[in-house]
């Protein structure tokens, strides 16, 4: 219990640092108008939200791998994140690399 309490400020500080630093790092790296910038913003900050969610359900034992169907659902959660991230990445690549007929 005490270790959980001491973890909370660290997680909060880490999250705030990431929310502040990550978008700025991405913009510095790719520029604000790159099609990959909003992608990384969504899946970077979204990953933080998602991981906090996983931590909460595992720590609280709401999800107990090995019990009933919980392991399968945990796998579904991880695969779901990968599915959407890969889908959107493939979509961006299809948008960028298939030639536009209008010439613009």
């Amino acid at each position: 219990m005490s270790s959980r309490k001491s973890e909370a400020p660290l997680i909060l500080a880490g999250t705030l640092f990431f929310v502040y630093g990550f978008p700025r790092a991405v913009i510095r790296w790719l520029g604000e108008s790159s099609p990959w910038t909003p992608y990384l913003y969504l899946y970077g900050l979204g990953l933080v939200t998602f991981l906090i969610g996983l931590r909460v359900i595992l720590k609280s034992r709401a999800c107990q791998p090995g019990r009933g169907h919980d392991s399968a659902w945990l796998a579904v959660l991880l695969l779901g994140y990968a599915f959407f991230a890969l889908l959107h990445a493939a979509w961006i690549m299809a948008a960028l690399y298939i030639p536009f007929k209008g010439g613009g």
């Binding site: 978008p23 909003p38 913003y41 299809a94 948008a95 007929k101």
Partner: peptide, 23 residues
């Protein structure tokens, strides 16, 4: 082929449009 590249993308600009932006 006839859809402009900007219209094919699944995301809009990060902040440009105050009514519809990724952030």
């Amino acid at each position: 082929g006839w859809l402009p590249v900007a219209h094919r993308l699944p995301f809009v600009d990060l902040v440009a449009d105050p009514k519809f932006n990724a952030s």
